[in-house]
């Protein structure tokens, strides 16, 4: 097949899958480009995956346990600066604008809106940004503190501005993350343990998966250098599955950040060294959709072992 044939084949598979998901109430349309809601079966499966992930967390940290925290999908714009997201991924970020005008400005806004013009151009930056990864608010929360290798458990919404007709690519989605911040050895151990445990869970759910080195989609020519460095040092692994035969999609990732966040947020270990961090994340909607592709849209008819693993029976 030529490159065009391969692309057309993929587009066809994506369209067929999306139509099936929509027809079976798995994906619900919204007015946002690339934004979908979930129907009851899909949401049950998402909750089941999150619960299975919490089970792994409890098993892997039996003595110390984990700290389960919750941060909302919106944070200060400064978070994107402090994590280097603005420099590395400007194409994916989203900030919030709000109306802060007076009555005169409101009349202008209404006039524009009645003429079906772009009223949003009259808004001003609200100082808020959408969170691109659920672990980012954690580092900011811990800023300036001493860390001891505790594992943090987070579920939250992420925003990535990459609307796509591929139903596997969500503009906004939920991520389960297990994050460890401590010594370099603790971070590395966390990544290894979770990569193995995450692969095992996905396999038990009936998915054929494969872990492989990967890179984040860093922007531009500067990004080429960052991507090459990330791959060379094997800092990022993805767990991939073929929702579309012949085209692997990542449904989970395991990342070593080295001292990137430790440095940016002044996180130190007991010996006053800059802390290292690692995170493992499941893309919850992506895993759910991969399961639908594998087992069908009727969750009641899924294999008993899969239903049990997800707490659905």
């Amino acid at each position: 097949m030529t490159t065009t044939d391969i692309e057309q084949d993929l587009t066809r598979q994506q369209d067929t899958f999306r139509e099936g998901l929509e027809a079976n109430d798995w994906l619900l349309p919204t007015l946002g480009d690339g934004v979908t809601g979930l129907g009851p079966q899909a949401e049950d499966v998402v909750q089941g995956i999150a619960s299975a992930a919490r089970g792994i967390a409890a098993r892997l940290s039996p003595e110390a346990g984990t700290r389960r925290l919750r941060f909302p999908p919106v944070n200060g714009t400064r978070l994107l600066e402090r994590t280097d997201y603005v420099a590395s991924f400007p194409q994916l970020l989203g900030t919030i604008a709000a109306f802060e005008g007076d009555n005169k400005a409101h009349r202008q806004l209404l006039a524009t809106y009645e003429e079906q013009g772009d009223w949003s151009a009259q808004l001003t930056p609200a100082g808020h940004a959408l969170v691109p990864a659920v672990c980012h608010p954690l580092y900011a929360y811990l800023e300036g503190s001493q860390v001891d290798g505790t594992v943090f458990e987070l579920v939250g919404e992420c925003y990535r501005h990459e609307p796509s007709p591929d139903p596997m690519r969500f503009v906004t989605f939920r991520m389960f993350e297990a994050v460890r911040i401590g010594t370099p050895a603790e971070a590395a151990e966390h990544r290894e343990k979770w990569l193995a445990a995450g692969t095992e869970l996905l396999t038990n759910l009936g998915l054929e998966v494969q872990a492989d080195t990967a890179n984040d989609p860093f922007f531009g020519r500067a990004g080429k250098l960052l991507s090459a460095g990330q791959r060379e040092a094997q800092l990022k692994f993805e767990i991939l599955t073929e929702v579309y035969p012949g085209h692997p999609t990542a449904i989970a990732s395991a990342n070593l950040h080295e001292d990137h966040f430790g440095e940016a947020f002044d996180l130190r270990t007991a010996d006053d060294a800059v802390a290292h961090s690692a995170c493992f994340g499941f893309g919850l909607e992506r895993v759910a959709l991969a399961l639908a592709a594998k087992h069908g849209f009727d969750v009641a008819a899924w294999p008993a072992s899969v239903r049990q693993e997800l707490g659905l029976s």
Binding site: D84, A87, S88, R221, A222, K224, L225, L226, A228, G229, Q230, E232, A233, H260, E263
Partner: peptide, 30 residues
Amino acid sequence: TSHASVNVMLGLEDEFDIEFPEERLTKATF
């Protein structure tokens, strides 16, 4: 750091008025 290496790359491109070709955008180059 990797981000510092990006700034080094951009600084060199400005100073020498060159553009590093893609195959040279690796850690080994810097």
